[in-house]
């Protein structure tokens, strides 16, 4: 098999894994904290806690993860046919 495909397959799996972890984080905080009665919500920077963790912190963490992946994990390969570059 083309060695570039090995890299591509690994990175596709990383994409799937990131999406699953992202979903668990998003769902866990939204419905874990959000299902309490409204009177028991606490507020962070003005936002209800479930929303703050699920959507704001969640987004920031995903963005950081993507940056780390790009910097340290994803590999540069040539997209042309071998021997072209």
């Amino acid at each position: 098999m083309d060695p570039r495909f090995k890299i591509a397959h690994r990175e596709a799996l990383i994409g799937v894994a990131l999406a699953i972890v992202h979903f668990i984080w998003w769902f866990g905080f939204a419905y874990g904290l959000g299902s309490k009665p409204v009177e028991e919500y606490s507020y962070i920077l003005g936002f209800p806690d479930w929303f703050f963790y699920s959507c704001i912190v969640g987004f920031i963490l995903v963005a950081i993860t993507v940056i780390v992946l790009v910097k340290f994990v994803l590999k540069d390969v040539s997209l042309e046919e071998e021997g072209d570059e």
């Binding site: 890299i7 591509a8 990383i14 994409g15 799937v16 990131l18 390969v77 997209l79």
Partner: peptide, 14 residues
Amino acid sequence: SYFVLLILGKKFAI
């Protein structure tokens, strides 16, 4: 935003 590029990713472009 990350899923489309990571899944189709390099293999699709190659």
